[in-house]
Amino acid sequence: MAIKHSQFVIVGLGRFGSSLGRELIELGHEVLGIDLDEETVQDMSSVLTYAVSADCTDEETLRSLGVRNFDCGVVAIGDDIQASILTAILLKDLGVKKVVAKAMSELHGRVLEKIGVDRVVYPERDMGIRVAHQLVSPNLLDYIELSKDYTIAELAVPKCLNGKSLNDLNPRARFGCSIVAINKANGIIIAPSATDVLTERDIMVIIGTNEQIEDFEATVIR
């Protein structure tokens, strides 16, 4: 559920990187894919906005590709931990606004955190499609696709909705989606009533079509 179109650079176009890239493109974003393997780059060139074969551990190469202008850099390198760490450092140094990196192990993840990576992803726990939705929507905490069209999403309640009741939002009448639960600090409200009031940092569990939830987020969560 994207609020605005963004530009992503994905370094490493293996299973995870290519899955993530495909979904970001489906969501309407621009994606530059970088991989050493020319055959992989050729396969993805018709899918992504741009795809290039390049050495991601070379600072001048990354600089020449203009990576500092991208909103988010994703290090999705497969089995070369040294290249993963060095690429993450270079993306941070070159001024990429947000850097996300795939970790192969807990130790690898801790190293990535130490060097300032904004988010560490473990492929065993985070599928590429789910991560794509989370990256482009700051209020989206979790995302489960029930079918091609229907989704359950967890959205954090922003400050602008603090004190609003579900009746004030009226999501079913206005957007066609439903808030089926509210996770509050003192417990979860299942099937909340129209009089239940939201508090900043509550978590809304919403069900509806992808378009309905996207409209709700774009209109209500500003």
Rank of each mutant, 00 (worst) to 15 (best):
I10N: 02
I10R: 05
G14C: 06
G21Y: 04
G21S: 14
L24A: 04
E26N: 15
G33R: 03
D37H: 15
E39I: 15
D43Q: 14
T49C: 02
A51K: 00
T57Q: 08
D58H: 11
T61H: 00
V67T: 04
R68K: 07
N69H: 04
D71G: 02
A76R: 00
I77Q: 01
I77L: 04
D80N: 09
Q82C: 04
A83F: 05
T87L: 08
A88Q: 00
K92I: 10
D93N: 13
K98V: 05
V99C: 05
V99A: 03
V100Q: 00
K102C: 14
K102L: 15
A103S: 05
M104P: 00
E106M: 06
L107N: 13
L107V: 09
H108T: 10
G109F: 07
V111H: 01
L112A: 01
E113A: 04
K114R: 15
V117C: 11
R119E: 15
Y122R: 14
R125Q: 10
D126G: 02
M127G: 15
S137E: 11
D149G: 12
Y150R: 08
Y150I: 10
Y150L: 12
I152S: 05
A153R: 01
L155Q: 02
G163Y: 15
G163L: 15
L166T: 08
N167G: 15
D168G: 14
N170C: 12
P171N: 07
P171M: 09
R172Q: 12
R174M: 09
G176I: 12
S178E: 13
S178P: 00
I179K: 03
V180P: 10
A181K: 07
I182M: 04
A185F: 09
G187V: 13
I188F: 10
P192F: 05
P192N: 03
S193G: 10
D196N: 07
L198C: 07
R201T: 11
D202I: 00
I203C: 04
I207F: 01
G208F: 06
G208L: 08
I213D: 10
I213E: 10
F216S: 05
T219I: 09
V220H: 02
R222A: 09
